[in-house]
Amino acid sequence: MRVPILKQGPYLIASVQSALTDADLLQMRDDLARLVGQHRSHGVVVDVTALDVLDSFAARTLRTMAYAIRLRGAQMVIVGIQPEVAFAMVQLGLSLPGVDTALDLEEGLALLNRKTSEDHASEG
């Protein structure tokens, strides 16, 4: 199932609704990398609240996605990792170093706001 991507102000929101196949993940990665440029978005929130499992491929893909988006000049935050999923990922060594995380969509957007204002502030 293709992950729907919404534009919310300067941000894009990719809301994963169900378990994803590897192809779906790659498709989302490509879509986000393309849409960030297209919409001149400052940030991306990937909401995985609905997922109760994140395997190594998914974790790696999310990490590379974050790096690619940062290279495209935006920030990416992963939100909604459930407690069980988080601990399982840590135990598997998939701790997503260098990737921002937040509790939920709201926190994610708040984090993006802080980050982008910092950027603007430093620019300013």
Binding site: I81, V85, A86, F87, V90, S95, L96, T101
Partner: peptide, 12 residues
């Protein structure tokens, strides 16, 4: 340590 990392994944 693992607990701290898991918490981080949750944004804490």
């Amino acid at each position: 340590l693992q607990t701290a990392e898991a918490a981080r994944l949750m944004g804490a």
